[in-house]
Design a protein around this nucleic acid. Sequence first.
DNA 1: CTTAGCACTCCAATCTCCTGAGTGCTAATG
DNA 2: CATTAGCACTCAGGAGATTGGAGTGCTAAG
Lengths: 358, 358
Amino acid sequence: MDLTPRQKQILRAIVDIYVSTAEPVGSKAIAALPDVDFSSATIRNEMADLTQMGLLEQPHTSAGRIPSPAGYRLYIDELMQDYRLSLDETKSLHDALQLKSQEFDEMMSQVGKLVSKMTDLPAYAIASRQNQAVAKHFELLSAGSGSIILVLMLSGDEVKNKLIKLPVSVTDDDLRLLSAVLNTSMTDLTAGQISAELLEKVTRSAGAAAPLVPLVTEFTLECLRQQHGDFHLAGQMRLLNQPEFRDVSKAREVIESLDEDVLTNLPTVLPKDGPVQFLVGPENVAKELKDSSVVMMRFDIGDGMQGTVGVVGPTRMDYAKITAKLGYFAENLGKMFQKNAGAAAAPPALPDGMKSEK
Amino acid sequence: MDLTPRQKQILRAIVDIYVSTAEPVGSKAIAALPDVDFSSATIRNEMADLTQMGLLEQPHTSAGRIPSPAGYRLYIDELMQDYRLSLDETKSLHDALQLKSQEFDEMMSQVGKLVSKMTDLPAYAIASRQNQAVAKHFELLSAGSGSIILVLMLSGDEVKNKLIKLPVSVTDDDLRLLSAVLNTSMTDLTAGQISAELLEKVTRSAGAAAPLVPLVTEFTLECLRQQHGDFHLAGQMRLLNQPEFRDVSKAREVIESLDEDVLTNLPTVLPKDGPVQFLVGPENVAKELKDSSVVMMRFDIGDGMQGTVGVVGPTRMDYAKITAKLGYFAENLGKMFQKNAGAAAAPPALPDGMKSEK
DNA sequence: CTTAGCACTCCAATCTCCTGAGTGCTAATG
DNA sequence: CATTAGCACTCAGGAGATTGGAGTGCTAAG
């Protein structure tokens, strides 16, 4: 079912116009385009064919045509023309990209808000580890009054800490022993490699500090297993700007489905052949999103971390423009994170341990 | 302008009915109530008086009455009857209150979501320090490859950490010196008490580690100044369940105004005479909220921290029920936080080699 | 003071009508 | 034989017009 060049031209025109007007596109509107030199009647014939092929739909007999999901897909894969960001747009993207925070999660959250703002659609951002995390170093600090602080350094310059109230009283020597045991036995192992036997062995070697072991190891395992960083969702209500969601109940359905479960489980399904990827309408697994599209983008953060940013909107979205904008982010976000993370030489931008916890 | 008992009864009835139906209340509806034994004509007269006094409003001549903001205020202050939570409600509140996480911010976020879910309205949660924070202890750990980790223990059992890439190479001895200097000079001081002179003195005493000082102190000050924990907002879209926001543009206006700035600045205006407090319609400072009400509740977290949870909705909300539910949270959240914070002491780990549950 | 009764008001729901955009088909054209 | 002009037909959506009913305010009687 290959399309003739003219059919492609028409399909592309219909998507382009529909995306910007949100109104079904009629044959006349296309005939009026500058580079179209065939009549509206011809276009009507072609549109009938395209409808036949399932690439277009007709809301009702006397209305124009709108692209079907298959039409969008074809458009994205073959027809879409690169959108060149204007100078203004590039500038505003550039300016916005000056992330303020140096805290990692905070930065991801800002990225989500940013993308949402720049696309005027809901957006999400999430960081995930590319590799299994391992512990690099354990440190036990006494914090007075029967409690200690466990500082856990992970691969990829992550640092976690936890305040532990002591179940039994232990001496400084006990702590030193435990610390040594942990650092010899538990480092450089992934969560999967830490066996019950190993834990038992550690407990046996820990002497008087043995009661502490489960507290420490449980927290450690929790940290190692945590594959994803916090999930950040921003600008849900921007969906209301879209005419297809003028009906509140539809908007609610979609907005409510935008949670961590749905969105983190989406990406993995995809082939990986570019920084920007698309899920159009029914291609989405979640049925609440069957009339919506997701455009997502991955970028490299360094330190074995990978970021994912996505945008959710009606199937009728400006794929070309969004692709261009996400592409810009894809190129520059990595640098941004590196810069903030490695900037010890430049005073204001301090390096960063990951989370601070209480 | 004291009301007669009958007027009070009528006003209360109007609020109660309007809250549940969202329709203007007519004289007949009130006359039909079981404990009303005067006629609709009488009620009409009284309603005319109440309207005169500014406690009721009339959307148009031939419609029933709805409470004015002043009417709501009077209702809240004097007329509202305690709503007794049903057994089912209590149970579901109780069940929901089993916070999973032991991470502090995570818990606050859960509380926000919880309150939002239980009231079917947008909710926010935020923790703030009751007292100025001070540093209790500094610890510098070398993290290999030209970087160190600063572990900062604050008052109230807070612990923060930060990975610092070294701008110059320093020896272990240098670090020990710096650590000692910090622990003698910079502990037990609020952000305000840390003067430029003090910082200079510390730098001078730090020897070879001097270039590190600004990195450390800047982070420290940042931590000390931070008065509020993260701001958590949940369930914005629940606003769309309310009939007054069936019009998307109104909903957008309100939802968009629900940000940290607006909501953290709200509470401070209030008198403090109970755990649950109200801001009705125009009592809100922000003009976007002039047709909305905020109900908020503070609770004690311990460790010198205080939590605030609030709910945002149309002025027509079920103040009595929300008050009851927030009241329940107010009573029990404190305990909840204590329990989780001290969890290390209690359940999973028992002294004798008892294997902890997984 | 209370209430029955009545005239009056006005929203909102329903219906009808009409317009205009858009289609599909046919027949003419190069 | 692809293209196009022309035409009859369809249909969504907006503008009035109509109506029903809920609710009020006032008056006069109990």
